[in-house]
Write a protein that binds this DNA or RNA. Sequence first.
DNA 1: GCAGGCAGCTAATGGTCGTTAGCGAAATCC
DNA 2: GGATTTCGCTAACGACCATTAGCTGCCTGC
Lengths: 198, 198
Amino acid sequence: MGRTGSARSGEILAAALDLFTRLGYEATTMADIGTAVGVRGPSLYRHVASKQDILAQIMTRTMEELLAAHRSALAGLAGTAQDDPVERLRRATEAHVRYHARHRREAFVGNREIRSLVAPGRARVLALRADYERCFRDLIETGIQAGRFDVTSAQLASYAILDLGMGVAVWFREETSPDEDAVVWQYGQFALRLVGAH
Amino acid sequence: MGRTGSARSGEILAAALDLFTRLGYEATTMADIGTAVGVRGPSLYRHVASKQDILAQIMTRTMEELLAAHRSALAGLAGTAQDDPVERLRRATEAHVRYHARHRREAFVGNREIRSLVAPGRARVLALRADYERCFRDLIETGIQAGRFDVTSAQLASYAILDLGMGVAVWFREETSPDEDAVVWQYGQFALRLVGAH
DNA sequence: GCAGGCAGCTAATGGTCGTTAGCGAAATCC
DNA sequence: GGATTTCGCTAACGACCATTAGCTGCCTGC
């Protein structure tokens, strides 16, 4: 449960992430995860507290990383000449899409398995997600008030932009998809068009 | 397995749809479904072949309805004065979003539980989905060639538009969300902006 | 070289679940 | 009104699964 687990527990989280992505949380067994790291199922309990705890660690870490990526994308902008609502939304969307392309398994599991996450972890992840959504909504509302965006509902627009990222995590494949940078640029463009930026 | 089941089997499909949406396919038990229709788990087998068959019926029917909605949305347009790529994409997107708002549980399950669908049903649903995706891609490619859309990758744009609909199925609630017509109109607008329609 | 703990194993526990078997009552058909 | 089908029930089977108990070998510190 410690913040920095052993090397083995890192391997286990990685293997579990892969299996959760392909089979889903409910359908993957501890024995599956064990096999993936070259060990029998029960041996996993030397390194992790429970199957549920594996999921909780994956999901909270993912949401924290996503929020960190968002903040760091906007941090470099504060005080510079291009610090306006349009540029801020572009950067935020690009960071969003880049995370979903680069960490598609984390994002995929993070979004699809909330149903399987129980009591304390679930509330934590939902709170982080609500924070993240509010960041985008605020960005868009600010842009509307500054007269730079032309859209009636900041709520709908932010849902739309966030959902675009989720979609990327579903279909993006490192081998066969367009270049990550191309996707990131295109989706940043999509977001600005969507809110009618000018 | 018959195309037109008894009244009871309709109830069962409806109850299963609700439970699959809330708990997921793996997490709902036959006993859960039974309780929802006022019957014990084993009694369900008088009306359905298996749990897996329930899922298969829900998913194939959903994809067929979605394709039918798409075709009927475009059918009324052929030969009229407004039959151009922009209007066609608007209609297709509006039908897409309307279906996802009005049948959010069907669309939600249809998209999230493909992993749980096995051999024959899975291929069938994936084929229908591929057909549906191709409809949108073709619509966008035609618009690009006609010089009405300004977008480099029809592939990316169609993914983006389709994903917007999926998003609607996730957050839309009849009671608390904006009016269905408002969402449909707004998302149609989003799609046209996204491809740079003019 | 040896004591202790780290990290694996097998076996077992307790529970759940999809599905089948077999029975009985009520409705339906002729 | 008797025979048959329909549809429910309980009991049981067989499989699987997360987790725990208890054992063993190996590496490490001294």
